[in-house]
Design a binder for these strands. Structure first.
Length: 596
RNA sequence: GCACUCGUAGCUCAGUUGGAUAGAGCGUUGCCCUCCGAAGGCAAAGGUCGGACGUUCGAAUCGUCUCGAGUGCACCA
């Protein structure tokens, strides 16, 4: 178990023991166990060296329960903590913090853990809980563009995080293949079909509700290849359903390809159309109907937004206000067909029926007005048994030579996922997209991402890993048998001397030991950006240690005259590399062994 | 008008489920390659954590109000 976790549990147990003793001593006025929220006990790496290695707030939390001041409770706790085998020194600090310094032996032990466990160091055992993460869900009307890229990478990283902390995660994509847009798509493809047959289209043919993008040209050509002139003279009613089906397939192939390029693999693609055909919509509506959540009413026009063709009319509404929404929401359009929202309710019911009670959606910030009604619907249709969580992410601004790159999907000249990946590669794209909190606007500068400097976090982290590999390559020229594999084996069997660990090296180990907690917290808060952030910190620790070796010969990694010392240093580097690799892997990035 | 998100150093951003004297990079200033990758490091300067009140041992973090920015606001998806 990671050292921080071990100590946290020991401190918690200590508090509990104190409580039990107290209860016997002071009958009646003793604290009640329910008052002790042991989960609030924190054991952290001290931020400052003056505070030792590890610090806990336990005495501050429970002084009141024990009817004494924090320092005096701390003093009593310290008397016991000082007897623990891990502890070299323990003090009561200002306000009642307890600061501990570990025996070097336990830092070495932690390093052995890190190296031996590798990707299991920060991994929790399965907790038996299922999570469904729906993300990307880009409309099947074109290739993925930049917004979808952030969505895909965020969602995928979030899924990986949940897996890491023990959940069984299901990655899911919702295909909106039943709405108006798909008809527009089919008509757009029909134009390309005619083009492919040599017809010259009238000017302005690609205006209005038509997707003008070039990516539909091959789809038209494919239809000619397949069916020849068969649809040329046919009425729209004859070709439309067929073109819809074919075009959606083609677009989903494009999107699957784009996702694969980003390293994203879905467990399932759910079709809106299939849901409806399966009768899910009717089922969902029946549930709502039964609970009195559907009625016919008239909505008032929204304030602050001028709508030309507003018309008050009776509509089929979902009683969203019953579940905390501002207004009730329409389920039927003016033409009598069901709204997107209605279909989405059915889809979420389906997820619930497939055994998911924990649902996560990743949506663009432009969907912020949709969140409350969807949560309301999930509550209504599952009787509150499923919980939906929506993560909204902000837009990405692309820069080229410091100039913003404009894009407009209407015109069909948007930046696609492929553009980005072709330019900077999958790994850099993934890393950059995760460097910022998803709720903040992200600036993506093509030059900066490719820059080989510390200003580029991708490079900075990869460089640290490559540098470690470089050390191992060099070491092999001095001591041919000191391969990384051999160093790990030697370190594991404990030939390393803990007393040789310097303060600088322990500082690195303190940083590494935070890894399990970083993962846990990142998953808890659904904030994958904490991973790249931490990796930068680890890289910084390593680069710093390297440079300290310039002035302090004792800190150099390779000493040609002392194989044993070299082996010990390399063992530490192996630990650093293990964390870097695990972290990069978690966010779907392959560590490089050499910078090119 | 309402809802959601975000306001931290000159700029771009971290900030460990509330914790000690708020941290990085860039930029500015000054250092470090006879030495494993200087593609790096060290140091200095730079802050009313948008503002006000509140909650408590303790607030950048939680609550209320307020100012500013972004996004969205019947039937689209």
């Amino acid at each position: 178990m990671p050292i921080l976790k071990t100590l946290q549990e020991k401190v918690r147990r200590l508090i509990q023991d104190f409580f039990l003793e107290n209860r016997e001593d002071a009958e009646g006025s003793a604290p009640s166990l329910a008052e002790l929220d042991l989960s609030k006990v924190q054991v952290d790496i001290a931020r400052e060296a003056a505070h030792g290695d590890v610090t806990t707030n336990a005495a501050l939390l429970f002084a009141k329960n024990f009817r004494c001041s924090p320092p005096s409770l701390a003093k009593r706790l310290v008397a016991v903590i000082g007897t623990w085998p891990e502890i070299a020194q323990v003090d009561v600090a200002r306000a009642g913090f307890i600061n501990m310094t570990l025996k070097p032996h336990f830092w070495l032990n932690e390093l052995q853990n890190i190296v031996a466990l590798g990707e299991n160091y920060a991994k929790s055992s399965p907790n038996g809980q299922k999570i469904n993460i729906e993300f990307v869900s880009a409309n099947p009307t074109g290739p993925m563009h930049t917004g979808h890229v952030r969505n895909a990478i965020f969602g995928d990283a979030l899924a990986a995080l949940f897996e890491k902390v023990g959940y069984s995660v299901y990655r899911e994509y919702y295909i909106n293949d039943s709405g108006n847009q798909v008809e527009c798509l089919a008509r757009s493809v029909y134009l390309r079909y005619k083009e492919a047959l040599g017809h010259t289209l009238p000017p302005g043919a690609f205006q209005g509700d038509i997707y003008p993008g070039d990516y539909l040209i091959p789809v038209g050509e494919a239809l000619v290849q397949k069916d020849g002139e068969r649809w040329l003279q046919a009425p729209e009613s004859a070709w439309l359903p067929y073109f819809k089906e074919f075009s959606v397939q083609a677009m989903m192939d494009l999107i699957r390809h784009d996702l694969a390029e980003l390293g994203v693999v879905m467990d399932c693609y759910s079709s809106e159309k299939a849901q409806i055909e399966k009768g899910k919509l009717a089922e969902a509506l029946a549930i709502l109907e039964k609970n009195g959540d559907i009625y016919t009413g008239v909505l008032t026009p929204p304030k602050g937004k001028a709508i030309d063709d507003w018309e008050a009319r009776p509509q089929t509404l979902f009683r969203a206000t019953k579940y905390g929404d501002e207004i009730d929401r329409p389920l039927k359009k003016s033409d009598g067909s069901w709204t997107y929202f209605a279909g989405d309710i059915a889809y979420h019911l389906d997820k619930y029926q497939r055994g998911f009670t924990r649902l996560i959606n990743v949506l663009g910030a432009d969907h912020c007005g949709y969140v409350t009604r969807l949560k309301a619907a999930v509550q209504a249709v599952t009787q509150g048994r499923a919980e939906l969580n929506v993560n909204l992410f902000q837009i990405v601004n692309f820069f080229e030579n410091g100039q913003p790159v404009k894009m407009s999907k209407r015109a069909g000249n948007f930046i696609t996922s492929q553009d980005v990946v072709a330019r900077v590669g999958k790994d850099a794209t993934r890393f950059m997209m995760l460097t910022r909190h998803h709720g903040t606007v992200l600036d993506f500068d093509f030059e900066k991402v490719l820059e080989l400097s510390q200003e580029n976090p991708v490079f900075y982290v990869q460089y640290a890993h490559a540098r470690i590999c470089s050390v191992f390559r060099y070491a092999a020229t001095v001591f041919p048998d000191l391969t990384e594999e051999r160093v790990r084996a030697l370190g594991k069997t404990g030939t390393t001397n803990a007393q040789n660990l310097s303060a600088a090296e322990i500082s690195v180990l303190r940083c590494l030991s935070l890894w399990p907690k970083v993962v846990e917290q990142a998953a808890l808060h659904q904030e994958p950006h904490r991973i790249p952030s931490f990796l930068c910190q680890v890289a910084g620790e390593f680069h710093s240690l390297w440079n300290q070796g310039k002035s302090d010969l004792a800190l150099r990694f390779i000493d040609a005259h002392n194989k044993e010392a070299t082996q010990e240093k390399l063992f530490l580097l192996s630990g650093v590399a293990a964390i870097l690799r695990d972290g990069l892997k978690l966010i779907g990035i392959r560590p490089v062994e050499e910078m090119r």
